[in-house]
């Protein structure tokens, strides 16, 4: 029998499959089902600013029917936020009482001040750790890279002043010097970095000439980004790395562990295949380990990371070169 246990952010996990922050982790019944099917940990659903704004607009439309005063709902978004925070804290308490796997709370951060107050309450509610979900798209041409990057460090520093529990940062790859950014963040008080955040992306409906949502779920091909960057950074960072986006099968988990991840986060595959699919993925990992005579994860973790690979250039190659060069045109 192989040992699938791993340590991530100082937490002991029975296996490396963490259920990512999503609707799957938004209520206790679902969390219990995920645990029963073998999840190693859960990251609770984030509270999003957009949801608060939508509820605010809905409330204002309702109140308008009563000819209510603007003054009444001018700051009502704060009240909605307070209610959502209170519900969230209750979710943490209920989840902690219902399951024995680690419960990681998630904070959707857009600025350094926004949620610091909230972090303290999350710790008091009993969360095992916090994942800062940094949804920052560097789309403002007037802002410098340095300004954008500073926000991340400000968030970490401010939150770490408030809490003692381990904190991870889930980040995107939109940086001009990604390797240095990951390294520098790992040298803060963060205990983990999750690569990479998956943003909502717009798509176009060319018949209706409308902006629509692109694919909601990730696909397996999306895993190339975390795979490359975890491989490159695994032996160069001062905190744990977790992989997410495009991890759909047991083999994908194995790849990320070989790259050097301490754990992986999954959501799309569970939405598509159900909670029971966690068992299938775990079985695939176990069978592979048995086939390769590994007794525990540490025996193969980071085995294919850039630092441990003789041909490190593979990881940094950006041109297909020979592949397309040798492939004859069929046109």
């Amino acid at each position: 029998m192989v040992d699938l246990t791993t340590r991530y952010m100082g937490l002991s996990l029975k296996n490396p499959i963490i259920i990512a922050s999503s609707g799957l982790t938004g209520n206790v019944e679902s969390i219990k089902k995920l645990e029963a099917n073998g999840a190693g940990a859960v990251v609770l659903k984030s509270i999003f600013e957009e949801e608060i704004i939508m509820e605010y607009d809905h409330m204002m439309n309702k109140m308008d029917q009563f000819e209510s005063d603007y003054e009444y709902f001018d700051y009502y978004d704060y009240k909605i936020k307070e209610e959502n925070v209170s519900k969230y804290l209750q979710l943490i308490k209920d989840a902690k009482a219902a399951v024995s796997i680690p419960v990681i709370a998630s904070i959707n951060c857009v600025s350094s001040h926004e949620w610091t107050y909230f972090a303290k309450k999350i710790e008091e509610a009993g969360a095992d750790a916090i994942e800062l979900n940094a949804f920052i798209l560097p789309s403002d041409p007037e802002r410098s890279s340095a300004e954008n990057e500073k926000v991340y460090f400000d968030i970490v520093n401010t939150i770490k002043k408030e809490v003692k529990i381990p904190v991870a940062m889930k980040m995107s790859y939109y940086f001009s010097n990604l390797a240095q950014m990951i390294k520098k963040l790992s040298e803060t008080e963060l205990k983990g970095i999750v690569l990479f955040n998956r943003f909502y992306s717009p798509d176009f409906d060319i018949e209706e000439l409308k902006v629509i949502s692109s694919h909601i779920f990730s696909t397996q091909s999306d895993q190339v980004m975390p795979l490359r960057w975890i491989s490159i950074m695994a032996e160069k960072v001062s905190c744990d790395l977790a992989a997410t986006t495009g991890i759909h099968k047991g083999e994908d988990v194995i790849k990320m562990l070989l790259a050097g991840a301490k754990a992986v986060q999954v959501a799309s595959t569970i939405y598509q295949n159900g909670a029971e699919y966690i068992q299938t993925m775990l079985k695939e990992i176990e069978e592979w380990m048995e086939r390769h005579n590994y007794l525990n994860i540490d025996q193969f973790r980071a085995k294919l990371s850039q630092a441990k690979n003789e041909n490190g250039a593979h990881y940094e190659r950006v041109q297909f070169m020979r592949y397309f060069g040798e492939k004859e045109s069929t046109l």
Partner: peptide, 8 residues
């Protein structure tokens, strides 16, 4: 106000 939330 107890019905409307905020009323003139």
């Amino acid at each position: 106000d107890i019905v409307r939330g905020g009323a003139t």
